[in-house]
């Protein structure tokens, strides 16, 4: 029997992997994909709990998360293009203008 716990543990594993990716990768697009991975792991939790509780709300939430992810992808990628145009690079380690 597949329980809700199975899905949630899987989701936790995927989420942590996404975190590692965000923290270690230097290519901004890969970082962005890792964020998408984290979002998807959360979506899995939502849908698993929604189906377990017999309630549609979780799935509606996922629906909106997808919408926001799409918008984020559009804006984020546009930002990267703009940044690349200026700096000839999308290496996250070169994003260091916030320094003292």
């Amino acid at each position: 029997m597949i329980t809700i716990t199975h899905y949630m543990v899987l989701s936790a594993i995927l989420f942590s992997m996404g975190t590692v990716g965000v923290l270690t990768r230097r290519n901004a697009i890969v970082v962005f994909m890792c964020v998408e991975l984290m979002l998807n792991s959360v979506n899995l939790t939502f849908i698993a709990l929604s189906s377990h509780l017999g309630n549609m709300d979780g799935q509606i939430f996922v629906f909106f998360i997808m919408t926001v992810a799409a918008a984020e992808a559009a804006v984020g990628l546009a930002l990267m293009i703009a940044y690349f145009r200026n700096r000839e690079s999308i290496d996250v380690e070169e994003f260091s203008l916030l320094k003292w």
């Binding site: 975190t19 965000v22 923290l23 270690t24 996250v92 380690e93 994003f95 260091s96 203008l97 916030l98 320094k99 003292w100």
Partner: peptide, 17 residues
């Protein structure tokens, strides 16, 4: 404290985590 402000996105993300 200003040495904690490295300017690297990774460090900020690390603090968040």
């Amino acid at each position: 404290l200003r040495y904690t402000q490295t300017g690297y996105t990774h460090n900020y993300a690390m603090s968040m985590v």
